[in-house]
Amino acid sequence: MKITEEIKKHLLFTELSEKDLKSISEFSSVESYKKDTFIFETGHTADCIYLITEGRVSIEMHEPVRGSLILESLTKGQLLGLSWLSYPSHWIFDAKCLDDVSVIKIDAKRLAEFCESNHEAGYNIMKNIALLIRDRLQSTRLQLMDIYATSREILRI
């Protein structure tokens, strides 16, 4: 898999020049994970960003009474891991593979340095991250709305 070609397809890196894409590919790698293994776990250092190229990943949180709960699942083409944005930081959820998974793993510290040193590309990347966060916020709001409830359930009658 040619990393430059793969990251070029991702929403995160639209509007970037070939030179910028090549720079980012230098601190990116292709990784594979087996089904039921963790890509990262709560509390560990959040120092990477992942672009899923194959398989499904669940974002989970462990709660002592209920055990592990899947909050969201991500698939091919989606971005995994946003905790690195406040680098240095720690993961606040677990990321578990629901299938055999392939990702492009990008060094978050070096990506942040790249954005600092190249403001135009950095602005484009951050703008795209803002769009992804907007979409996740909208999805979370939909989940909170409980859209499948009947009017009777909403009004508690």
Binding site: S58, L69, I70, L71, K76, S139, Q143
Partner: peptide
């Protein structure tokens, strides 16, 4: 939309899965 312990399928609103 809301998983429970023991659920191993997808979680999240269904329009999100159209992209992939």
């Amino acid at each position: 939309d809301r998983s429970v312990p023991g659920w191993h399928g997808h979680a999240g609103v269904i329009p999100n899965f159209i992209q992939g």
